[in-house]
Amino acid sequence: MTEAELVPEQGWVAPRVAEEFPGIAIAWVEVEGPSGKSPEPVKRRLRQMSDRFHGGHAVHMRERPIPWAYRVFFRQIGLDPDRTRTPVEELALQRMKGGAFKSRNHLDDALTIAIVETGVALRAFDFEQVAGRLGIRLSGPGEELEGRPGELPHGTLVVADEERPLGLLFGATAAGRGVQPHTERILVAAVQVKGVPQIAVEEALWTCSIAMSAG
């Protein structure tokens, strides 16, 4: 993939959500799968990132504008970011516990690189399992998240396609909508909140795409 080809698609945000949370947005790109084992350049980049990332970074990370913006948003939607960690803080914690950003598979490694480098929250779905455009909305009465028991409380914030919820916003992914080892087309989505600049979102998606096209 070349830089010129990468134009993130902008998703929709339900009017009620946009009214309550100005600045919230979702954008995505399609990358090629299957994920598989990471190529050496991606593993090398993870090692370089591990060498650059120390305890001081982890401690001061939440003071940086983008990680802080996600922390604030987590509070505002009823999540405690010290229990349900923001994506970048979760990776920082894993780095400190594990001693390195450990390679898991190509997609996870690409997401790790992009999230740690930019602070932007990314997640992936199976492109073939997404109907139409992605968006953010509130769950409706009686709506469920596939693979989980019971109805979602009305008013739950979800990432959805044009037919159903694909996952909780900053939470679990619906069964069958996530990326599997055989997934050929992968949708990488960035959730933007107030305080996260558009350019950071584009950089995150671009970084992930480039890492996925490596090797």
Partner: peptide, 27 residues
Amino acid sequence: LTELFASAFPRKRIEWDVAPAGGPRLL
């Protein structure tokens, strides 16, 4: 709270949790 967290380092055994409201939801 973020500034306090940074200034508290390296002290341990400090409670930082704030009870969540069962999100992600419109509160």
